[in-house]
């Protein structure tokens, strides 16, 4: 396997803390292998910064295999970089050209305050999840799975919605910083299943209320969220959330 090396001109957002004023810093990334992931490239850059006695670029990362949703950053204006259905950790440097300039910014939304450099506080998603994104299961031994028949097509749809890893790229991509795609995926995956039926209305009302309370914008149906989503959550979920919320509001006592 050939290993082409490249040099890149990075423009990275540096911000010392939540209240600090941020700025772009130009950093040269030299001898970058085309086989590296974007995060590995940043690891090398950070390694060089440590050697020079400078402060490293802070960024979130965890599993590095595209399932945890930690690696939040906006690369040349695109959340998770230029490719579809990709997290930043799954983005490879061969996607870039030698000598290219790359602008790296944090996810920007008022509801995702910046903690440091590229690290944002995305706990707003946790609070939305807590406002109804669960089922209340009784304790005791689990009943037989076949007691509740779920048609295959429904199960597949619910599963597709459940694949949302909660990374926040939908918010980052949206011109309104709307969380509609995330919230709709969480509402959908339970609304589609019999297990979620009992708390269906309460869930839609609670999660939407929390979404609004967190200060996310409204949905303009541009589709930029779905295009930026690492697991390609479909816009159908947003329509389902709109229906769920409308009927739940009508039925509310």
């Amino acid at each position: 396997m050939s290993d082409k090396k490249m040099n890149l001109n990075l423009k990275v957002w540096r911000q010392a803390g939540p209240q600090a004023k941020g700025h772009f810093q130009e950093i040269q990334a030299t001898d970058v292998s085309e086989h590296m992931s974007f995060l590995e490239m940043l690891d090398v850059v950070n390694d060089n910064l440590v050697r020079k006695g400078e402060e490293t670029i802070e960024f979130d990362h965890d599993c590095r295999e595209g399932i945890c949703g930690s690696c939040a950053m906006v690369i040349n204006g695109n959340p998770h970089g230029p490719d579809r259905a990709t997290t930043t950790c799954q983005l490879h440097m061969r996607r870039f050209k030698d000598g290219e300039s790359i602008t790296i910014e944090p996810f920007r939304a008022k509801s995702f305050p910046i903690l440091k450099d590229l690290v944002t506080d995305r706990s707003a998603f946790d609070r939305i999840q807590k406002a109804g994104g669960y089922i209340s299961a009784n304790t005791g031994s689990a009943q037989d799975a076949n007691n509740i028949p779920v048609p295959k097509k429904k199960a597949d749809l619910a599963f597709a919605s459940a694949t949302c890893i909660g990374c926040g790229a939908c918010v980052a991509a949206c011109k309104n910083a709307s969380a509609a795609l995330f919230v709709s995926a969480k509402i959908s995956h339970l609304a589609l299943l019999p297990q979620g039926e009992a708390e269906r209305s309460e869930r839609a009302l609670g999660m939407v209320a929390q979404m609004d309370a967190e200060g996310f914008g409204a949905c303009t149906n541009t589709g930029a969220c779905s295009a930026s989503c690492p697991v390609e959550i479909s816009l159908e979920n947003i329509a389902r959330m709109n229906r769920e919320f409308m009927f739940a509001s009508l039925k509310k006592k």
Binding site: N76, G77, N78, P79, T103, R108, K110, N176
Partner: peptide, 14 residues
């Protein structure tokens, strides 16, 4: 809902 705007606009499908 976005207090600080991005330096670059998204491209392609995004």
């Amino acid at each position: 809902a976005r207090d600080f705007k991005y330096a670059m606009r998204p491209s392609g499908a995004k």
